[in-house]
Every structure is written in C-alpha cells, then in structure tokens.
C-alpha cells in the first residue's frame, strides 16, 4: 500500500504545537509533471553511473511502498517533533 497521509508535528517557539497533514495522493497528482521530470533525470543518472535504470526505479518504488507505518518522534527540552507516515 502506498503512503496516504503524512503527519508532521512540531513545537513552535511560543510553546504551541503545529500539526501538518499532507495527503500524499493529491500531492503526487499535483506534482506529477515534476515527477515525470524527476523520473527522466533518475534514468539519465542511472545510465551515467552504469546502473540498471528499471531495477533501480523499481527499488525506489519498493522503498516508497514500504513507508506506511514509519513513525519518528523526538522530544528534547523545548523541541518536539513528530513525523508519521500512514
């Protein structure tokens, strides 16, 4: 399953927490023209470094697909950071 929602939370200087919810699919659709360029750039980079482009892209795709469930939470002093991928 591809990531659907990225949640970011951090504490501002005034002590209040800010939360940011990023719906992945709409953002990917919105940035799809740039993604096409990024894929083309990736293929060119693979060819430059003698890497198999399709296998490398498949590997990156697998990495993207495996992201749901990842969660990073750090709290130290006044710093509070949360990054959750669902």
């Amino acid at each position: 399953m591809i990531p659907q929602l990225v949640t970011a939370r951090w504490r501002r200087r005034d002590g209040r927490c800010r939360r940011l919810f990023l719906p992945v699919i709409p953002i990917v659709l919105l940035l799809s023209p740039l993604l096409v360029l990024a894929v083309i750039g990736g293929v060119i980079a693979c060819l430059m470094y003698d890497l198999p482009p399709f296998r490398t892209l498949a590997g990156v795709g697998r990495l993207f697909w495996a992201l749901p469930g990842a969660r990073i939470e750090v709290e130290q002093g006044r710093t509070d950071l949360l990054l959750s991928i669902r």
Partner: peptide, 15 residues
C-alpha cells in the same frame, strides 16, 4: 529529558 520513539517498518529495511 529526551524521549525518542522510532518505528521503522521491516519492509522498509528490506527495500
């Protein structure tokens, strides 16, 4: 006080 809580899917490690 420092608190760190990290959860990494094993699928991600394999990928």
């Amino acid at each position: 006080e420092t608190k760190v809580n990290i959860r990494v899917p094993l699928k991600l490690l394999r990928a």
